[in-house]
Structures are given as structure tokens and as C-alpha cells.
Amino acid sequence: MSTVAETRREWLLSERPASRMQARLGRAYVTWRRFSANRLAMVGLFIIIALLVVAALADVLAPYSPTIGDLKNARLLPPSAQHWFGTDDLGRDILSRVIHGSRWTLFVVVLVAVIAAPIGLLVGTVAGYAGGWIDAVLMRVTDIYLAFPKLVLALAFVAALGPGIENAVLAIAVTSWPPYARIARAETLTVRNSDYIKAVQLMGASPMRIVLRHIMPMCISSLIVRVTLDMAGIILTAAGLGFLGLGAQPPLPEWGAMIASGRRFILDQWWVAGAPGFAILIVSLGFNLLGDGLRDALDPRSGDQ
């Protein structure tokens, strides 16, 4: 058993990989070893995996319905054996709502990352590589976005698009790409004059090919790190929009919206706002720790060995 694990490790760490697959897996394994050596990062990873599991199994895990409450008998009950996190003003079980809310949180976070990161990456690398007026135009547009506070800009977009969680996601995505563009551009500027990019130019590669296949891979790791670190901010912005009534609409169990509706009872029935608040705190922490760990594991400057 241990010898099998031993040879597998040797195969992964081989200095002479025999196939494309082995080279790739070996590289991934080295990154993973560097990541897993960081205990806090593993805590972060554990939190995020737990979030994924909870979101996937929400229907099974939640003891009650997240939307239908017992108005007659179960309004604003404190935490107890029946209702671990208590109930809200409509008699709904808060634990169940928090569990179902994890889906919406993931939905927001993933969608924003999927929309904003590629836009930022593309704008940044193209601007950085092309230079000249293309760079000037793209970066001035970026600056305009950066000049407004994120939440204010998101508010304006939601106000224009109409309230709702999909529009909130869109608004957050539209406002969060500029920092990614900045990072990608800075990274591009450091690699565009390197000999290995010159070598590809000398093969006759088109500028688009150079950007997509040679420059972007160099920017991706710092971008991944930044995106995971931003996840917490995205959750909070979504929660903020929810709180202001412009994000998720009732009875959707979105955490921010839950805090907003629990605000009225914060002094007497603290658990109504406290439980989703705590969930946001934990998940944000998880993403932050994960991002920090990824930064150390993926940073090319920390040596590729």
C-alpha cells in the first residue's frame, strides 16, 4: 500500500515526465503540496468545500422549508433543539434559510467571477500588449469605473436595470472587472518585453495568439488569487444590495436580504440577523484564507521548484 503511494509520488515528481499528462499532473501536484503545507489555507479550502456540499445538498440538509413558515406557532423563536438558529418573523426556520441561502451566495459569487475576471483579463492584456492609443482608451475607461465606489456604481446599475438578484449579479460584475484589468495589464507589461515573448513574435505569431496563448497564462495565477480575495467583497456587496432591497427579493433566502429583514429585531431577537451575518463572516473568511494560500502556492516568483 505504502509502496504504491510511494511510486505514485515518484511518478508525479519525476524530473523526466514521459507524457504531456504526467508533466501537467506533476506540476499540479507540486502546487498542491505547496498549498497544503499552509494550514490556514487548508482551513479556507475546507470552509469553501463545506459551502459547496451544503449548497449541493440543501434540500436534504434543511430540516424545514426555507420559504413557508409556521406563522401561528413559530414566530421569532430563539435558538432551540427544534430550530437550531431560531425562527424569523414569518415563522420560518433560519437554519433552513441559511442553508438554502448558500446556493444564492454561490450563485452570485461564481457568476460574478465568471463574468468579471475574463473581461478584466482580456481588457488588461490587450491594453498592456498593444500599448499606444488602444492602451490609453481602455485604461481611461477602466479609470472611469474605478473612480466610483463599487457599491454606488452597482446601485446605479441596479436602479437602471430594476431590482432582482440576476440584475444585482450583473451590476456587481460590471463594476468589479476594472481592478482585474489593472492587474492583468501590470503583469502583461512585465512579460511583454521578455525574450520568450520576443521568441514567439519571431515565429510569426499574430498579436492575438501571443496575448491569448502566451501572455494570459502568465496573468492567470495572480488573477485567480485576486478573484478569490475579492469573493468576500462580492458577497458583501451582494448582501449590501440585498440589504438595501435592490438585490434578492423576498422570499428568496439570500443572506444579505435576510439581515435586512432581521434588522428590525436586532436588539430583542438578535439571531434573526445574526445567523446569516455569521454565515457571511465564515464564508468570507474562507475565501480570504483560500486566496492567501493560493497566492503563495501559485506565485511564479516563489520559484517553480
Binding site: 504531456r20 520568450y196 520576443k198 514567439v200
Partner: peptide, 25 residues
């Protein structure tokens, strides 16, 4: 190029490096 440390893309295997000119042409 002069600097063998700078002229090979740090994230590509030798295989990828050699494939690129073939793909371009």
C-alpha cells in the same frame, strides 16, 4: 537569444514550446 533563462516560456513544456512554431506555420 543570449539568455537561456529568459527565452523559454516559464509555463510551457519543451513539447509546447516546439509545437508553437509548427502550429503557427
Amino acid at each position: 537569444f543570449q539568455d537561456p533563462y529568459g527565452s523559454l516560456h516559464p509555463r510551457q513544456t519543451v513539447d509546447r514550446l516546439l509545437q508553437e512554431p509548427l502550429a503557427i506555420h
